[in-house]
Computed example of a mutant assay.
Amino acid sequence: MGATTTMMMMMMMMIAVKGQVYFRGDCPITPIIKDFDWERYLGRWFEQERYFVGHQEVGRCFSGTYIKDYKTGNISHRAYFWDILLNRPTVLTGDVTAKRPYAAPNFLTYTLPRVPVQEYHYQVLATDYDSWTLQYACVPQPIGHTRMVWILTRSPHPPYHVIGEAKTTLISLGMDVKFLEKEDSSFLIVQTWFQEHPHLELVDWPSRGCDMNPAEDIWANMLVTLPYRPNACAGGKTPEEDE
């Protein structure tokens, strides 16, 4: 982890509890999944909706992969997201452990290798392993507590019934779905493609730099050199349709 990533993580910790969803009283009792199956839970999960989470405000298009080292039995989590501060895709890898692997295997702790003093406690609230999962964290505060809820799916673009099933389960567990916010997935397809092609180097290009958008020149040349084709999607006809 470089200095920039470490600084970013420290900033994430500072804002982690700001703007969270507050509730009165103590953290509620949540279910223990005695037969939680790590082998089925491993792999890629894409964030779809969540409560407001302060430390995720530095990025968008979050997804993550749980990986098991079969030599040691250790499990790590590789988080992918688009860093809106650095304007580039970012990967963070941390360790995931269950403090009580037999008594509460779905209650997990996440730590970053170079930030061992900071632990993030969360749990798998419910999952069908194949389509969706609900992750949850509760942090006691001087008055009341804050909650964080995430809906994640195996597919980056799940069908409606998958989200519906996840939300129905969330309601049955006493969680309020009105606090859920949809993940900004505008960069998801491009981000995923670049993650799957790590040999390609991204150019650090300002998204709104003055006179630095090559698309303007490309469009100008295309308008001059290419024949006119009406937009069929907007109601026009293509030359083939005219024939």
Rank of each mutant, 00 (worst) to 15 (best):
A104F: 12
D176F: 00
R154N: 09
Q191K: 08
T109H: 00
R60V: 04
E196P: 12
H121S: 12
R78E: 05
G164Y: 07
A79P: 05
I151C: 01
H197Y: 05
G25K: 07
L180K: 01
L86M: 07
R114V: 13
R100P: 05
E57F: 09
T168N: 08
W132Y: 14
D204W: 07
L188R: 07
V190L: 14
Y102C: 12
G64C: 06
L134I: 11
F46Y: 04
R60A: 07
F107Q: 11
Q123H: 09
L112V: 11
Y228I: 05
I189D: 11
W219C: 12
V17M: 14
Q48G: 01
W150V: 00
G25N: 07
V224W: 06
V224P: 02
G54C: 04
R88W: 13
P214N: 05
E216P: 01
R88N: 08
F179Q: 08
A103H: 12
K18F: 14
P89D: 01
Y122E: 04
Y129N: 06
M9Y: 13
R40H: 08
T4W: 13
D217P: 01
W45Q: 05
R154L: 01
D242I: 13
L134T: 02
A126V: 06
I218N: 11
L170I: 04
E240M: 11
K178V: 09
G43R: 05
E241M: 14
H77C: 11
D37N: 13
K34T: 14
P89Y: 01
Y70E: 10
C233K: 14
G54Y: 03
L226H: 15
G94F: 10
I75S: 06
K167L: 06
S63D: 10
L125G: 01
Q48W: 02
D95G: 10
P198D: 04
F194L: 12
M9L: 15
Y122Q: 08
Y41A: 03
R229V: 15
E49P: 06
Y129M: 07
G43Q: 06
T5L: 01
Y22D: 00
N87G: 09
T4P: 02
R208T: 09
Y102K: 15
R147L: 14
T238M: 13
M14D: 12
S131I: 03
T238N: 13
G25I: 08
Y228L: 04
A126D: 11
T133E: 00
R208I: 06
F23H: 10
S172C: 08
W45N: 00
I171H: 06
D83A: 12
E49M: 01
V53H: 00
M12H: 13
